[in-house]
């Protein structure tokens, strides 16, 4: 049943990329357990605006857990305490009356803070541009049923493609590694016949871009997958490593 909570918030405030930033404390009262975490922030921001204070900037859009915009690091966990959900789908019934909640932005040097809880994740787009696609121009396609794809491969490709690009994996990783994100895309295409022609080139170029962006190395702690709101599996990292090795060993690929 619906209840009301009184909460203490410690929120990271940072004016811009060059500002040092600090925590500020806020009290919010009468928060319904039916609210989403972001709706609780709406209430707080409404109050701040009314009091002539600067509202807290945070990324959000669909509020259905699919666009990947929201990105809060809550009590030391990306997207908060609940498994398998994004911040927008985290509801206040996961908290108790009187709780102190600490909210920070994603912390990783390839994701510089723009303001408060908003970070720049354009590095992910650049990794996709480096090779996260199948080179097929519009109009070149053959009939969609011309190549049957075993259901288990299609399902596994879909599971990889469910990645929402939110960056929680990077935020969760002590090395700020982007391996889970990159491997999900590599794996999706590696499992499909359409992805075969560029398979080796793709993995080489995406990994090269990932390194260039300054993401750290993978040390197999598995925090990324544990915190991933879409449950992207570590298997994809294993598949990417195999493909990367194969690509490095084959002589005609760079």
């Amino acid at each position: 049943m619906e209840k009301n909570l009184n909460l203490n918030l410690k929120v990271w405030r940072q004016k811009n990329a060059s500002d040092k930033g600090k925590f500020e404390e806020y009290k919010v009262n009468n928060i319904s357990t039916d609210m989403s975490f972001l709706e609780m922030f709406d209430v707080l921001n409404d109050k701040l605006v009314t009091e002539d204070k600067d509202p807290i900037a945070f990324d959000h859009d669909c509020r259905e857990g699919i666009c990947g915009s929201c990105s809060m690091f809550i009590n030391g966990q990306p997207h908060g305490p609940k498994q398998g959900v994004t911040t927008c789908q985290l509801h206040m019934r996961s908290f108790n009356d009187g709780d102190t909640i600490v909210v920070e932005p994603w912390r990783a040097s390839p994701f510089p803070v723009i303001k408060d809880l908003v970070v720049d994740r354009s590095a992910f787009d650049r990794i996709i541009s480096a090779g996260g696609f199948i080179s097929v121009n519009t109009g070149n396609a053959q009939d969609a049923n011309a190549i049957p794809i075993p259901k288990e491969n299609a399902d596994e490709a879909f599971a990889a493609a469910a990645c929402i690009g939110c960056g929680a994996c990077v935020a969760a990783c002590k090395n700020a590694s982007a391996m889970l994100f990159v491997s999900a895309k590599v794996s999706q295409f590696a499992l499909l016949p359409q992805g075969q022609p560029e398979r080796h080139q793709r993995v080489s170029e995406m990994v090269a871009q990932m390194d260039l962006e300054g993401f750290g190395a993978c040390t197999n702690t598995g925090a990324c997958s544990a915190e991933c709101p879409k449950g992207i599996s570590l298997t994809h990292i294993a598949r990417m490593n195999r493909d990367y090795l194969a690509a490095s060993l084959s002589s005609n690929e760079k």
């Binding site: 396609a141 969609a144 049957p148 299609a154 879909f158």
Partner: peptide
């Protein structure tokens, strides 16, 4: 077009 670009539709 979508299948050619790697969209994993249900099968």
């Amino acid at each position: 077009q979508s299948v050619a670009s790697g969209v994993p539709f249900a099968r």
